[in-house]
């Protein structure tokens, strides 16, 4: 049910990982920052993929949890001092999880197009709440003047101010997210949410209280979106209400479409393609005046990609590298 990468896909993934790990050694801070964004957005897309690709819940408001955790870091950062990663990160993720629990408890009761609409509606409510309340710094956003540090007692072990260190921290978070989600998908819980995606009615008839499983999935996804949002806020030390907006939610869906739904690691390829192409389309040297309207180019690119690679980059990769993943059956025999 979960498409685990086969040996050759793992090889490709390791190559990509090695390529990503070598970015800091290029010594170009622009590309380092770009790669950091790719990785953080890949975590964000991956968290949404748990809902879209594995639970069958197409959330159009996933940025709410991303943005709230970003604001979590901003609110927890003292003005002239660094927040402690050990406190700020779990607290920001917990904030995202709590709001996902409250929103999820309501929206998970709906299905299909209604689910899309109510997730969007709740996210927009949170967006306006953040934009219009003085507490969050208003529509102009707010700064995090000092990046968070990892501090135990009085000893600072590591600061996110260190670009390379921060980059590798994000890369570790990405690998951690992927591995943890794979573990979850292979667990009894994972089997249940995949069953819900396939045929929720039958799952209920088989004795599963599907509401509770969908809600749990929604909260897990929101929590990892929170991880991504927290890291995203630390990239520039700046948060704005747009982080919660529907654009941000839509971008994550596009990354999943580009990467290929149903593989989890596809989100990484989706993020690379999305951020990479955005950067290329904004290049005036290549596209001239069209670069100012890069969204048009992006639109054409996404349409072309979806038409040509129906199952996304990952789907193409899995086919290209050979047979599909082992099923539960085959894994049993192994």
């Amino acid at each position: 049910m979960i498409t685990l990468p086969n040996a050759r896909t793992i090889a490709v993934l390791l190559l990509v990982l090695a390529a990503l790990a070598s970015v800091p050694f290029l010594g170009d801070s622009f590309y380092l920052k770009l790669a950091t964004r790719v990785i953080v957005l890949a975590i964000f897309a991956m968290s949404l993929e748990l809902l879209i690709g594995y639970t069958g819940l197409v959330s159009f408001g996933h940025a709410a949890y991303f943005g709230l955790a970003a604001y979590g870091l901003q609110l927890l950062s003292p003005e002239y001092d660094a927040a402690n990663l050990l406190v700020a990160l779990p607290a920001s993720m917990a904030l995202a999880a709590l709001v996902a629990l409250a929103v999820g408890a309501l929206v998970v009761r709906t299905r299909g197009i209604y689910f899309i609409m109510v997730t969007l509606a709740f996210a927009q409510m949170l967006f306006y709440l953040v934009r219009d309340s003085a507490w969050f710094g208003g529509s102009d956003g707010a700064f995090i003047y000092v990046k968070p540090v990892l501090r135990i007692g009085e000893t600072v072990l590591f600061s996110l101010d260190d670009r390379t260190g921060f980059y590798f921290f994000c890369l570790c978070c990405l690998v951690f997210t992927y591995v943890l989600l794979v573990v979850i998908l292979r667990s009894p819980f994972g089997q249940v949410i995949m069953g819900i995606k396939e045929n929720e009615h039958r799952m209920q008839a088989l004795g599963y209280n599907t509401y509770r499983y969908k809600l749990a999935s929604f909260v897990i996804a929101g929590t990892f979106a929170g991880l991504a949002g927290f890291l995203f806020a630390a990239i520039d030390g700046f948060v704005s209400p747009e982080l919660l907006g529907w654009h941000q939610s839509g971008n994550a869906i596009l990354m999943i479409l580009l990467g290929g739904s149903g593989t989890l690691f596809g989100s990484l390829f989706g993020a690379i393609a999305f951020v990479g192409m955005e950067d290329i389309f904004k290049e005036r040297a290549i596209f001239g005046p069209l670069a100012d309207h890069w969204q048009i180019l992006m639109g054409v690119f996404v349409i072309a990609a979806v038409l040509l690679l129906r199952r996304g980059i990952a789907g193409w990769l899995v086919t290209w590298t050979g047979r599909r993943s082992p099923s539960l059956q085959e894994r049993d025999d192994a």
Binding site: S187, L206, R331
Partner: peptide, 15 residues
Amino acid sequence: QSRLPTSFRFFSPAH
């Protein structure tokens, strides 16, 4: 699997 007391088990492999 529906006869397990709960399927809220996140970390042990189902198979």
